[in-house]
């Protein structure tokens, strides 16, 4: 097994979860309804917990301690997609991102239950079950607000149009894509993208939201190879502020 390819895959999975988890946590105390405040906070805790389990797996492969990895790297060392790091915006954008991102993540971890790397396959069985609650939550609200009032539909449509090019950046291929597929670590981004498009179409057909022609969209990529938007570094600065003030502190 190509260990470099495996690590690259694990970093991508973990960084996506840490960064989207941090964004979700920014809704704590700010949600439009108490119910949604709790939902985004719980999903944040799930995702950050899952990122920790993945960083621990990386530590077992010789990488640094999870806290160091999470808090001491700069933006260009992160492998998350740019979509995950975008600011929350208003609730409409956060909800749309939650739907598009979590749909992809749920399918990804279903595929990963078949990974040739058994610790990842085992963990993915667990993560897959937890993510069900995230996608069910997203689908419920997208269907509800995507058929509710003119304002809710217009707002979600605008958020969808804005989010889609970034969402397609989730599927940016790894520099080790062929090795990852050949060694059975993961079935690959192309297959994931196909399944994601089917699932997104399936859910949105029960709403008044319109998908543009996929072929007219240009994916926003770069995140997987450390080329991020201007939004990641400020997020990392805030997230790591306490840790960096005294990295050796015992808590």
């Amino acid at each position: 097994m190509n260990e470099t390819a495996l690590k690259e895959l694990l970093y991508k999975l973990a960084d996506d979860k840490l960064i989207i988890g941090h964004r979700n946590s920014e809704w704590t105390g700010m949600g439009p309804l108490l119910e949604e405040d709790i939902a985004f906070s719980s999903m944040a805790q799930d995702k950050i917990g899952q990122s920790y389990a993945l960083y621990q797996m990386l530590q077992g492969l010789g990488e640094q301690d999870p806290d160091i990895v999470a808090f001491m790297r700069n933006a260009d060392q992160f492998h998350n997609c740019i979509f995950a790091e975008l600011p929350n915006g208003e609730y409409d954008f956060s909800l749309m991102r939650h739907f598009l991102f979590d749909t992809a993540e749920a399918i990804r971890f279903d595929m990963l239950t078949r990974s040739a790397y058994s610790p990842l396959a085992e963990l993915s069985i667990k993560i897959r079950a937890e993510l069900r609650y995230h996608t069910l939550h997203a689908n419920t609200w997208i269907k509800k607000l995507g058929t509710a009032t003119e304002e809710s539909i217009t707002r979600l449509q605008t958020a969808l149009n804005e989010a889609l090019p970034y969402a397609l950046g989730i599927f940016e291929e790894s520099p080790y894509e062929e090795e990852i597929k050949d060694s059975g670590l993961f079935e690959g981004e192309k297959l994931l993208l196909e399944r994601w498009m089917e699932q997104v179409e399936q859910i949105l057909k029960d709403t008044h939201l319109k998908l543009p022609d996929w072929s007219n969209l240009k994916p926003v990529t770069g995140g997987r190879v450390g080329r991020h938007s201007e939004h990641l570094q400020p997020l990392l600065d805030e997230m790591s502020e306490v840790f960096r003030s005294d990295p050796g502190a015992e808590w």
Partner: peptide, 8 residues
Amino acid sequence: KNPFGPTL
């Protein structure tokens, strides 16, 4: 009321 609660 909510699929998410006071603990995970």
